[in-house]
């Protein structure tokens, strides 16, 4: 294997972890409400632009990410309160919720355009530690290492929260059987809100990291990312977080190989080709449950 190819793989894995982190948000919400949140991409863009906004006010970049993380989490919670919970209460069909999230997506995106303009903003990489390590002949920059560490760390944290904490147990209970969860004394609406917060928070961090990595951010940046990471989540199996990780890495690596060999024009197409293939041949993804109808 030549070193260019290895480089594609390293880049692909770095990218893949970010995709997986964004995909987590889809999976979390899907596993609880059995809906796909189409506002996720715009909310990710909100995370990037708000971080930039706070950095431009002279606030420390990491603190900016932290403030944005909380704000973005609240933006997702607001979405649940104003457009998803009312539909849930009326037992509306899933497609209404789907369209409501799509609507919220445009509200957020247009709000960003009003606030920041529709143009592209420069976003200085705030996590370049200024060194490069060499593994054999393979140079890996500090930005990539930081990106890997943060996205990997956050996914571990999410896994820990869901599998090892008291709140996580309640989240898993609601995923399995909402009625029984209520009988246990679990306040389901609060758990749903908490889940939306987690989804928003991870989207915000990924938005800021990606914007810093490519040194650019703009209000519509979430369109492609949103769809790509939905493909990631579907490939892994919606609702399965570890599946999302593998899905992210597969799509990330494929993307880097295609971009490197066929040219960057085709890079965004990769995930959609993968998406079509999974929808045809593996509708429940790599780790998804065969039967996803909710009882």
């Amino acid at each position: 294997m030549n070193s260019t190819f290895l480089l594609y793989i390293v880049d692909g894995v770095v990218l893949g972890l970010i995709y997986a982190l964004v995909a987590c948000g889809y999976s979390l919400i899907f596993s609880i409400l059995r809906i796909v949140n189409f506002a996720h991409g715009s909310i990710y863009a909100f995370g990037a632009l708000m971080t930039l906004f706070f950095i431009n006010q002279g606030i420390n970049p990491w603190l900016s990410v932290l403030i944005t993380l909380i704000l973005t989490g609240m933006l997702e919670m607001l979405m649940d309160k104003v457009c998803i919970e009312p539909l849930r209460k009326r037992n509306s069909p899933g497609v209404s919720t789907l369209i409501a999230t799509e609507g919220y997506s445009y509200v957020v995106m247009n709000m960003l355009i009003i606030l920041f303009g529709s143009g592209r903003n420069h976003f200085e990489t705030f996590y370049d530690l200024g060194f490069t390590i060499n593994i054999g002949s393979l140079p890996i920059s500090s930005t990539k290492l930081v990106l890997l560490a943060i996205s990997g760390g956050l996914m571990l944290l999410m896994t820990y929260i869901i599998n090892k904490t008291h709140v996580g147990l309640a989240i898993r209970a609601v995923q399995q059987n909402t009625t029984s969860a209520r009988l246990m004394g679990i306040k389901v609406n609060r758990i749903v809100l908490g889940t939306f917060f987690l989804a928003g928070a991870t989207a915000a961090v990924s938005g800021a990291l990606v914007a810093g990595y490519y040194q650019i951010c703009y209000p519509t940046m979430g369109m492609v990312m949103g769809n790509k990471t939905l493909a990631t989540a579907l490939l892994g199996g919606l609702g399965a977080m570890h599946g999302g990780l593998l899905g992210g890495i597969i799509i990330g690596v494929l993307e880097c190989i295609v971009a490197g060999t066929l040219g960057a024009t085709y890079r965004d197409a990769v995930s959609f080709v993968v998406l079509i293939v999974i929808l045809i041949f593996m509708p429940s993804g790599l780790f998804g449950k065969k039967d996803i109808t909710k009882v």
Partner: peptide, 25 residues
């Protein structure tokens, strides 16, 4: 406490997690 019709267990969780949820509060 209600043990509902059709049992209403959490099928994907372990026996112990199910019991833990019974005393969730």
């Amino acid at each position: 406490a209600l043990s509902p019709e059709g049992r209403g267990i959490f099928p994907g969780l372990t026996v112990e997690d199910n019991l833990r949820l019974g005393a969730y509060l």
